[in-house]
Design a protein around this nucleic acid. Structure first.
Lengths: 257, 257
DNA sequence: TAGTGGTCTAGACCACGGC
DNA sequence: CCGTGGTCTAGACCACTAA
C-alpha cells in the first residue's frame, strides 16, 4: 500500500510518507467510506510542508483509486487501501506469502533458443537474438494453481540460470542482483489448457484457464521479462482501478498472438 | 488517448495539451521505441510554460504507460498510445464503434427490487434500498458476444427507465443527463455460463466466460452503477499498465461473491 | 460569499547517469 | 563534471461547491 519504489533503501520522499499515512488512516476507517479528507491547507500545516507536497501525495492516492476529487469540495474516500504492492503483483511468491499461503515452484524446462518474432517484438530484441525460456509449475500450499512460462533476454537469463535450482522467487533473486522492475504491461484473457498444462495442473486438455501475459521493464525502459501465466479458474481474480484522469485499463479485440 | 475529463466542454488545461501532443508524436514514432524525449527544460521553453506544467504532462503520460523516467537521463518511450479512452472502456458501444464494429443491444429484463447485500455494499446503499436491474445481450455486427447485468441506484435507474427501448448506449445517455463517471473499480476473472447465458450467447451451460465486474463512481465519489459483464472467449482481452510509481492492478484470491 | 481543489509560475537544492 | 529528472517551496489566480 502506497509504498516507495521497489525495495530501494532510500529514505522515502515526504509526499510518500504523507500518502502512506493517509492511506493507513483511510484503511482504519478514520474518515469513513465516502467521508471527506482534511483540506490541503490543513494537511500542509499539520505536516509542516507546502501545499505542493500535499498535492503530490493526493495524486498518488488518487491513482491508487483510494480517493476522488473535484474543485470546490474536499476529497472523498472511494476505496480501501490495496493490500497489494507492485512487488506482490509481479512476484507470485510474494503475493502468495502475503495471503498466508505457502508458495512453491517446480521447474519444468529451462532452455536457451533463438527468440521467435513475438518474443523479439516484446523484448525489443534484434533478429537472431538468443533468449532463455523457463517453465515452472507454481503451487499454493502444495496445490498446483499456475503454469508460468517466462522468457528472458540473455543478459537477464544468465543470472537466472546461475540460481540454485530450488530458488522459489526468480523476481526477488533478480532484484537482489540489481535488476529492478519499474513498469509492466499486462494482457488478461482466457485460454485452453494444452497437453502439458493439463498434465501439470491436473485438469483436462481444453479446460479453460485464466491467462495473464506480461512484459516488464526496468527503470530505464529496457524489457526484462516476457511471461505468460496460466491459472486454474477459482484460484485468482485480477482487480484494476481506472479513472478518467489517467486510465490504465483497456479492452481490446480478442487475441491473435 | 490522453484526452481530457470526459466530454466536459471546458478548454483543456495546458498540461493536457502538452501530453496530447507528446502522445501523438510518440505514436507517430518520432522518438522511436525506446527513444529519448526532449528534456523538461527544452519543452518548457518550446511551449512557453514553466517546468512544473511540463512535469504534470509527463506524469500523465507516465500513468498511461507511455514513458519511463529516472533521475539522470531523459525520459524513455516504452509504449504506444492507448487507442482507447476511458469512455471507450466504460461504454461497450463506444468501444465497439472505435474498432469499426457495429454494436447492438437487446434488453432481456428490466426490474426494480430491493438491493441484495452485495449490491448495497458496492453502491453504498442503506438496507432496504430499491435498485434497478437491467440485463442486456450485447452484440458486435449482430453476433452475440456479451451478457451485461447492470444494477443502478434508484435515482440513476429512473433515468435509465425513461430511455427509449432502442437506446444502445446507456452510458452515453447517462452522460447526456449529466451523470458522469470519473472512476471505476474492476474485477476480472473466469466464470461459467448459466442457463440464461447459454441460451442468449449460443453456447452451452457450463462453458467458460470471461467476466468483468465493475463499480463506477461519479466525480463526487458516489457509486453510479454496479455491473457484471460476461464475454464469450475469443471476443475480448483486457490490457492494463502498472508501475511501481502508482500500481492500479492487483491479483487476489479467487472469488466468493 | 467563503472555502476548496485545479492550474501555473519561478525559483531552489539534490541524486543520479553518463561522459 | 554537467545535464537530467526528483523533490520541495511560496506564492498566484481561477472555477467550482456548498452554505
Amino acid at each position: 500500500m502506497t509504498d516507495g519504489p521497489a525495495g530501494t533503501g532510500k529514505p522515502p520522499a515526504m509526499y510518500r510518507k504523507v500518502a502512506a499515512d493517509l492511506g493507513r488512516e483511510i484503511g482504519e476507517g478514520r474518515y469513513g467510506s465516502g467521508g471527506r479528507l482534511p483540506a490541503e491547507g490543513e494537511l500542509a500545516e499539520r505536516y509542516g510542508v507546502s501545499r505542493g507536497t500535499i498535492r503530490q501525495a493526493m495524486a498518488l492516492l488518487r491513482t491508487e483509486g483510494l480517493i476522488a476529487s473535484r474543485r470546490g469540495t474536499r476529497r472523498v474516500v472511494i476505496g480501501s487501501p490495496r493490500p497489494q504492492s507492485f512487488g506482490e503483483l509481479l512476484s507470485f511468491t510474494r503475493w502468495a506469502r502475503s495471503t498466508g499461503e505457502e508458495p512453491g515452484a517446480r521447474i519444468v524446462t529451462v532452455e536457451t533458443r533463438p527468440a521467435d518474432p513475438t518474443e523479439r517484438d516484446q523484448l525489443h530484441l534484434p533478429a537472431g537474438s538468443e533468449i532463455y525460456e523457463v517453465r515452472r509449475l507454481r503451487t499454493l500450499s502444495g496445490r498446483p494453481v499456475m503454469i508460468e512460462r517466462t522468457v528472458y533476454p540473455s543478459a537477464v537469463g544468465e543470472l537466472i540460470a546461475e540460481l540454485p535450482p530450488d530458488t522459489v522467487s526468480h523476481t526477488v533473486a533478480l532484484e537482489e542482483s540489481g535488476v529492478l522492475i519499474a513498469d509492466a504491461q499486462h494482457t488478461i484473457d482466457l485460454c485452453r489448457a494444452d497437453e502439458e498444462d493439463a498434465r501439470l495442473l491436473g485438469c483436462r486438455p481444453g479446460d479453460p484457464l485464466l491467462r495473464e501475459r506480461r512484459c516488464s521493464t526496468d527503470p530505464a525502459g529496457t524489457p526484462v521479462e516476457w511471461s505468460e501465466d496460466r491459472y486454474l479458474p477459482e484460484t485468482v481474480a485480477f482487480t484494476v482501478h481506472s479513472s478518467a484522469a489517467s486510465g490504465s485499463l483497456a479492452r481490446r479485440p480478442a487475441d491473435d498472438a
